[in-house]
Nucleic acid binder design. Structure first.
Lengths: 153, 153
DNA sequence: TATTGTTATACTCTATAACTATA
DNA sequence: TATAGTTATAGAGTATAACAATA
């Protein structure tokens, strides 16, 4: 703990107001994401690479499909995929019907890595989640789903 | 709509496991934070600057105190504060007792800007929060508090 | 010597614009 | 012409290391 008292008041009534809730939620998300990014620095692949691999676990995708799924532009996804292919975690095959497109699929090495990476990547967060009670965990679980839904819009 | 079905299953029992919950929560947080960053691009000040100003609204702080509150290194906070002082949103005064330290405080212009910025910064999120029901909003409110607590550790 | 803050430098991730190849 | 993907370039934000000034 630090010497600085961090006052965190919580008023359900106030938070029922969308604008007030949005402010607090945004700060919480941004701060947690920064911690997640820094705490995960010891990992082998970046969050973006991890997310792309996760999608490919469900099946082959083109680059643009992946870009849209992750809400990034095509060049960003190109970079992510380049890194993954160089590491032998993703394989590229030409699209059978359309010569412009490239089908991306996860390799066995990619499957292995992602399974191992799962525990490492989420260690920091899992540690903190583990000390919560079931009710708080349920809250976070539902919140995660809500955040995904909101981000997909 | 796309031709790709995005399957988002939700199983409360599975999510009670800390490692499983941590994985989903991390993805949700990272994706939402990316949307928040890009959607807020029209704003005047960055998320980091905004957060620093928010802390200074509660009272004067030194640079290192702010860095610790935001979980960033000192040079990063120097950069944030430099930008804020150049914009006249933060004032620097020498510490009365310790010549090394610099006391940072928010200016009237800073107070004005942050109040205006609040609505802009959170517009994207507030819009999505507004269409939820009270129960979901309460979930997100509690989740925000939990995420802040976890990030403070 | 230790601490506060700054400067120098580099890395990561992202975006837009311009380009190639294919449809 | 339009679309898929790549390359070039730039910007934002972060970190570590080295430094200056003060305690």
């Amino acid at each position: 703990m630090t010497g600085i008292p961090i006052q965190q008041t919580w008023d359900p009534t106030e938070h029922a107001r969308p604008d007030v809730l949005a402010i607090d939620l945004r700060i919480a998300i941004m701060r947690t994401s920064r911690r997640l990014r820094t705490e995960a620095s010891g990992d082998f692949i970046s969050p973006g690479q991890y997310a792309a691999l996760t999608h490919l676990q469900k099946g082959s995708r083109t680059l643009r499909e992946l870009a849209r799924l992750e809400n990034v532009q095509a060049p960003s996804m190109t970079r992510i995929i380049n890194s993954l292919t160089e590491q032998g975690l993703v394989a590229r095959t030409g699209h059978p019907d359309d010569g412009r497109q490239v089908l991306l699929s996860i390799t066995p090495a990619g499957e292995t890595l992602i399974e191992e990476a799962r525990s490492h990547r989420t260690a920091w967060l899992a540690q903190r989640v583990a000390v919560l009670n079931d009710e708080d965990r349920l809250v976070l679980s539902r919140a995660a789903q809500l955040m995904l839904d909101m981000s997909a819009t």
